[in-house]
Design a protein around this nucleic acid. Structure first.
Lengths: 247, 247
DNA sequence: TGTACATCAGTGAACGCGCGTTCACTGATGTAC
DNA sequence: TGTACATCAGTGAACGCGCGTTCACTGATGTAC
C-alpha cells in the first residue's frame, strides 16, 4: 500500500516540484527575453533579470548555470519564435504558388524582425562578444532553411532563362562549393535553382538587416507603408528571378 | 624685430605642438583600431587603449572627449578604410565594363570585410548598444553608395527584360518609396535600374554578413577558395540580372 | 640672453557603478519509516 | 498520523574585476618682456 502511495505520490510530487521548477525557468527566460526586447542585449545581465523578477541574483543560478547558458536559451528561443511565426504564416496561406509562398515567408520574416529588432539582432547581427554558440542552437536555426528547401522541392518547373552560362568545366567546382546545402536539397532540384535560392535567401536578410540597422536611412523613404510595399516588390523581383512559379 | 621673431616662432611652435598633439591623437585612434581588429568591439575601452599605449587612462581625455567620441572616430575610420580600399581597387581596374566594375567593387568589399571582420561588424553589424551615431559618420558612409551611383550613371543601356511588370498605377508610389536614392541618381537612369541596383547592393552585404557571422556554416563549403569562387559567381549573376553591360 | 609667467601633457588616486559567480546560511517542502 | 531526515529554493554578503570619468597635482615646454 505504502509502495502504491509512494508510486503515486512520488512521481506527482516530483512532477509538481519539477513543474514549479520548469515554470520558474520559463519565467526567467521570458523575463530575459523582455529585457532583451526592450533594452537590447547590452542591458541583458544575470543581475538585471534577477532584479526584474525580485529575486536575489544568486537565485538565478539554481535554474541557469551561467550567463552564457542564458544567452543560449535566448538564442534558441529567438530562432524558435521566428520559426513559429514564419511557419504559421506559411501554413495559414494554404495552397498557393511557390512564388506566393516565398513572398509570404519573406514578409513574415521581416514582420517578426521589425517587431522584435533586438531579438533579430541577437541571432542575425554581429555575434555577441566573448560568446560562442553551442551546438544546441544549430537545430532551431535550421527551421527556416528547411522551410525554404521544402519550397524548392515543390518547384518542379525548369528555370526560365539560365542566366549567364556557367562554364562547363567549373560546374563541378560550384557544386562542391554549394556542398552541404546541395546535399540537403533533393536531387530533382537543379544546381542553378539552389544557387539562386541561396542568393534570394541572403538578399532577404540583407534587406532586413539594412533596414533594421539604419543603412537605409537617407536612401529609401522613411514611411513604413512605402517601405513595406517596396519590400514586397523586391520579394516579387527576387522570386521571379529565381524562377519560382506564380500561378 | 621681436615681433618678427614672435610671428615666425609662434606659429611654428604652435604648429609643432599641434603636430605632436595630432600625432598622438592619431596614435590613439590607430591603437584603438588595432584592439578593435584583434579583440572586437567588446574589448574596446578607454582604459584598454591607454594601457596599450602605456599611458594613464585619464591622459586619453586630453585627446578624446569621451568613449562615444572614440567609437565615432573608429566608425569614421572604418568607413574611410573600406572606402579607400574599394575605390583604389576600382581605380586600379582601369577602363572596364560596368559589370566588371560592379564585380570589382563587390570583391574588394568582401576582401576588406574578411580581412577585418571586427571593423566590418562595427559598421555593418548590430548597432553598438547605448551608442547613437552622430552626423559626422554620415558622409564617410556614403562613399561606397556614391561609387555605385556613378556606376549606374555610366550604365546607359536599356534593361534586357523588365522582370515582372510593375502595375502602372503603382509606379509613382514606388518612385516615392525609392525617394532619397532616386533623387541622388541621374534622371537618365530608369527607376527599374535603381531598384535592381539597390537590391544587388543589399544582396552584397547580405552575403558578406552571412559569411562573417557564421550563417553559412553547414550551408556552403568551408573552403576559402571555393567560397571566393562562389561569391564571384554570385556577383556575376547579380550584375547580369541588374542588366549591367559586360562588354 | 635671462627671467617671470602661462599653457599644456600626463599622472595617479579616487568615485561610483555594475557585472558574473561563489558560498555558507535559513526555511520550507517532500520522503521514509 | 507522527517524527526524523534529506532535499531543495532562495538569501545576502562577499570577492574580484573592469569600466568611464573627474580632479588636484607635477613637470615640462613655450611666451612675453
Amino acid at each position: 500500500v505504502s509502495e502504491t502511495n509512494a508510486e503515486l505520490a512520488a512521481p506527482s510530487a516530483r512532477g509538481l516540484r519539477q513543474g514549479v521548477r520548469d515554470a520558474l525557468t520559463r519565467q526567467i527566460v521570458v523575463t530575459a527575453n523582455e529585457m532583451l526586447a526592450q533594452h537590447g542585449a547590452g542591458q541583458l545581465s544575470v543581475r538585471a533579470v534577477a532584479r526584474s523578477l525580485g529575486m536575489a541574483s544568486s537565485a538565478i543560478y539554481r535554474y541557469v548555470p551561467s550567463r552564457d547558458a542564458l544567452i543560449t536559451l535566448l538564442i534558441v528561443e529567438a530562432y524558435n519564435s521566428l520559426g513559429d511565426h514564419v511557419e504559421s504564416s506559411h501554413t495559414e496561406l494554404g495552397p498557393a504558388s511557390v512564388g506566393e509562398r516565398w513572398r509570404t515567408i519573406g514578409r513574415a520574416t521581416r514582420a517578426w524582425a521589425l517587431d522584435q529588432p533586438h531579438r533579430y539582432a541577437l541571432i542575425y547581427g554581429s555575434p555577441v562578444p566573448g560568446y560562442a554558440a553551442p551546438e544546441i542552437t544549430i537545430e532551431p536555426a535550421t527551421r527556416l532553411p528547411r522551410l525554404m528547401i521544402g519550397l524548392l522541392a515543390d518547384q518542379a518547373v525548369e528555370l526560365p532563362e539560365p542566366g549567364r552560362a556557367v562554364p562547363g568545366e567549373l560546374a563541378e567546382r560550384f557544386r562542391l562549393a554549394l556542398g552541404p546545402l546541395r546535399a540537403m536539397v533533393p536531387a530533382s532540384v537543379p544546381d542553378e535553382l539552389v544557387l539562386r535560392a541561396l542568393m534570394g535567401w541572403t538578399q532577404l536578410f540583407g534587406v532586413i538587416s539594412f533596414e533594421l540597422f539604419g543603412h537605409l536611412r537617407n536612401v529609401i523613404s522613411d514611411d513604413p507603408e512605402l517601405r513595406r510595399e517596396l519590400f514586397d516588390l523586391e520579394m516579387d523581383r527576387v522570386s521571379a528571378w529565381i524562377g519560382l512559379s506564380h500561378d
